[in-house]
């Protein structure tokens, strides 16, 4: 086991032990370990790498350290800068999980139900990867490659996530069959970019990977009153909802049916839009 203190420590340990498992908050890895499904030969512990648990602004972007916990995403200035991400983080598991689980962990696990992923998708986030031999930056869609699959090489770790600071409201809504501590049945993030005169929509739990509702976004861009902030007309909202639901590619599982997910993601789209542009049709 290596308890890394710096990013370089961690990368060096990974280079030396390519079979090592990365341990950040442990909220996913340890579930498998406890069940005997994940064997551990070597572990690189990341939770004491200060660089990973920090964030800073570079121009119009934020660099979020992969070691920021879900609780961290709700502290200080971050909720003001990234309200949808803070809201998504608040729906993850329990207070205990939010104290331990990290942004990087949510990405690496790459679950279709990962709560921060639709927000990162909507934000056009990129993922900064690092190894002893270098670093690279991937778009989210290039990083999350399938159900619980990511683009990490054995010697790589997630260093940070780059997201833009946007002018405009951001919403995150998540359906679960319990009022707290629940895996999402469907989730939706809606991010308004007033500067770019666009609305971006990320969808969770409706496909193997987080989705963007590109057609719906394109449709909406033409129907928002960008100059006065007025909401789209009711029929434009209906069309938006239809396009969002159409973008979903859900499956039936024990948490919900495909039909329900398709329906619910449309409802979330309508509500998120209404919250972002109040005053129009619900």
């Amino acid at each position: 086991m290596t308890i890394a203190r710096t990013l370089d420590d961690a990368c060096a340990a990974l280079a030396e032990h390519p079979q090592a498992r990365l341990l950040a908050g442990g909220t996913d890895l340890m579930v498998g370990v406890n069940r005997g499904q994940v064997g551990l030969d070597h572990v690189v512990v990341l939770d004491r790498v200060d660089e990973l648990r920090a964030w800073h602004r570079t121009g119009d972007d934020l660099l979020l350290g992969a070691g920021l916990t879900y609780a961290d995403l709700g502290r200080g200035d971050l909720p003001g800068l990234l309200p949808a991400l803070a809201q998504a983080a608040r729906t993850v598991g329990s207070p205990q999980i939010r104290n331990a689980g990290t942004l990087g962990g949510n990405l690496a696990t790459a679950s279709p139900a990962g709560d921060t992923l639709p927000v990162l998708a909507a934000l056009d986030a990129t993922v900064l990867l690092r190894s002893a031999t270098g670093s690279r930056e991937l778009p989210l869609a290039g990083f999350v490659t399938g159900v619980k699959q990511n683009a990490l090489e054995p010697d790589e770790l997630i260093e940070a996530v780059r997201v833009p600071v946007l002018d405009g409201p951001q919403e995150f809504l998540k359906v679960g069959t319990r009022n707290a501590m629940v895996i999402s049945v469907v989730s939706l993030a809606l991010v308004v970019d007033r500067g770019g005169r666009g609305v971006r929509v990320g969808l969770g739990s409706v496909a193997p990977v987080p989705l963007r509702a590109a057609e719906a976004e394109a449709h909406l861009a033409d129907h928002v009153g960008w100059d006065d902030g007025s909401p789209p007309a009711p029929d434009a909202v209906d069309r938006f909802v239809e396009l969002v639901a159409g973008a979903a590619r859900p499956i039936d599982d024990h948490r919900g049916s495909a039909d329900y997910r398709r329906h619910a993601v449309g409802v979330l789209a309508r509500r998120a839009l209404h919250r972002a542009f109040p005053g129009g049709d619900r």
């Binding site: 809201q87 729906t91 995150f172 809504l173 998540k174 359906v175 009022n179 989730s187």
Partner: peptide, 13 residues
């Protein structure tokens, strides 16, 4: 409201 921490509903729903 229904939906709890997922904040899916406003009172009007």
């Amino acid at each position: 409201l229904p939906g709890g921490a997922g904040r899916t509903a406003d009172a009007g729903h």
